[in-house]
Design a protein around this nucleic acid. Structure first.
Lengths: 337, 337
DNA sequence: TTGTACGCGTTATCAA
DNA sequence: TTGATAACGCGTACAA
């Protein structure tokens, strides 16, 4: 026989209602003696409340879903950690969902989470999109999103990492050091932050009187090999003295390439990464990078989502989060040979 | 009004029972026409099954809990990814729980998971232990553990990463290259794998006629700074030509120190890491390391746990997983100056 | 101060 | 081929 409230009630010779009150801390009208007796049996029998049954009544599950492309990606690892932290702190549990940037998996998870009656969802949309499928699916719980404004328009919370500013500051830093030919090696991506960064790059240049040169913009995948292979195959545009990368891994790829080519960093080439992950600090030289406060972003996503849920306020809220440049060793004045 | 089976049933003019059969694919005895009609309204109304209610009846939730120290640690990131992958593949969802190696948090999660009626739990025990508390808590669902045999004796599945062999192979590799004075810089740890690795280190030496020297064993924390600081403060025992590290981050810390000290790797010093994380391959030189197949471990933990659950077979099963050495650039023959 | 009784949404059994 | 109904374990008015 399972250990239920009924079971406890029978053992103690009280009613289920009394047990319920006690285990839920609503014992203002329960005699101290019976309370202790019940608590003792609860302990002895190893009773755990059944939140499924509770949720049937209360209509909430104290559970959230977190949908990300891949926990292995350091950027999402950070967000997840922040999200999970905030969730427990607020008494919630978190379902982990890795989409691998597949829209099918994403939708599969969405359905599953709704079937599980989660109280809310945090979605970092996958890169692959399919508007028809999105149209079809109606998410019936509040959800929070990150940046990618084009998808999931019915969010209640959107955290906007300032990609424009992050990029702008990085390029400005390089210009201040004296760089003029600054390459932008971006990651392959069809989400809105790509455009924002591109704008930041362009504006920073133009606001400092440097004409934009499209030959200096290149694209590879968001990893070490991608950046490395790109440079191996294409090299640098002559006289380039600095590179802004799409993330820290790409910066590492560039760094590996410079080592093979005996290019001094930052003497011959300055490199800036993006994300301020552990990679930027364990490399040699340490990489100047843009910190996006991922962990904080995860915390904010959950915190704000829960506030919306609690308040039953489903109007939309946009929350900006500043990025900032962390200057380390991979950037310096260009040395003209 | 919520979209429930009852709601659908009323719209279609059929009974709840019929709807239930249809949405659960048990329509062998349902007329095709009514089936299509019901399915259509399900679609139109955006009905999702309520798994809470279902679980009340079926006594399972198709949900697992994953308890790890910290998802930020690359080792656990890998395990988590593998675990989540296998979980979805088998139709299960996963709760993510970070303990930060705190026994209190661990127990808090355990309670929460049981309250959520998970079908099983995967526990990577935190380093901090408290046997009294463990005694008190009776986990009422099957669970799987990793190595640390001293805790949670009632597991149904235990995956045993072969720490002994991993270490043994690493040291043997160094000996084969000609090293005699091999330092072991271990990570601070009170779990059993520490002992196993230590045994592997010792045995490898002694089986090759090299006497064990306790001065060559040191301890720091499991990160870059720990290893770096240790060497900065204590330096190497004279004539040491190789170091086995507790993990890749520590190996990186050693590498950083050698750069400052102008010690050539692997010419003056060979370094071996542990875990075969991305760090070992992005450094320069790339680090020889022991691969523990973490992702696979995560998959196995879930797969085997689910098999036990399905079979309602709660006898214990121990599953060995081999480690193997990955030779890269940080190890070579010692050069005697 | 304690207990009764209903409902939450589903599954499963058995009858119609 | 379909439907009525009793669980599942809990929360909450309301009654005692």
């Amino acid at each position: 026989m399972p250990v239920t409230m009924k079971h406890i009630a029978e053992l103690c010779g009280v009613s289920i209602a009394t047990v319920s009150k006690i285990v839920n801390g609503k014992y203002d009208d329960v005699k101290e003696e019976t309370r202790l007796r019940v608590l003792k049996t609860v302990e002895e029998e190893g009773y755990f409340i059944n939140t499924l049954a509770r949720s049937m009544k209360t209509k909430n599950t104290k559970t959230l879903g977190l949908i990300i492309p891949d926990i292995k990606n350091a950027y999402y690892t950070d967000i997840s950690r922040g999200a999970e932290d905030m969730a427990v702190r607020k008494g919630y549990s978190l379902f982990l969902c890795n989409t691998d940037d597949s829209i099918n998996k994403e939708i599969g998870y969405l359905v599953k989470l709704m079937e599980k009656q989660v109280d809310g969802i945090i979605i970092i949309a996958s890169m692959e999109r399919n508007f028809e499928m999105e149209e079809l699916l109606k998410i019936n719980v509040p959800f929070a999103v990150l940046n990618n404004s084009t998808n999931y328009k019915d969010y209640v919370v959107r955290v906007e990492v300032d990609d424009y500013k992050g990029m702008y500051e990085g390029v400005e830093h390089l210009i201040a050091l004296g760089h003029r030919k600054i390459m932008y090696l971006q990651g392959k991506n069809n989400l809105s932050f790509g455009e924002e960064r591109f704008r930041g790059y362009k504006d920073a240049l133009e606001n400092h009187g440097i004409p934009f040169n499209e030959n200096l913009v290149a694209t590879s995948t968001f990893n070490v090999e991608g950046a490395y292979e790109y440079l191996r195959e294409n090299g640098l545009v002559p006289e380039t003295t600095a590179i802004m990368c799409g993330n820290d891994l790409m910066a590492l790829g560039v760094l590996n390439w410079t080592k093979e080519e005996c290019i001094d960093v930052p003497g011959d080439l300055s490199i800036i990464g993006y994300d301020d992950t552990i990679f930027s600090v364990i490399s040699s030289p340490k990489i100047t990078t843009v910190n996006q406060h991922c962990r904080l972003v995860g915390e904010i996503l959950v915190k704000e989502l829960l506030e919306k849920i609690d308040a039953e306020d489903f109007t939309q809220k946009n929350i900006p989060v500043e990025s900032h440049l962390v200057v380390r060793e991979s950037t310096g004045k260009p040395m003209i040979h």
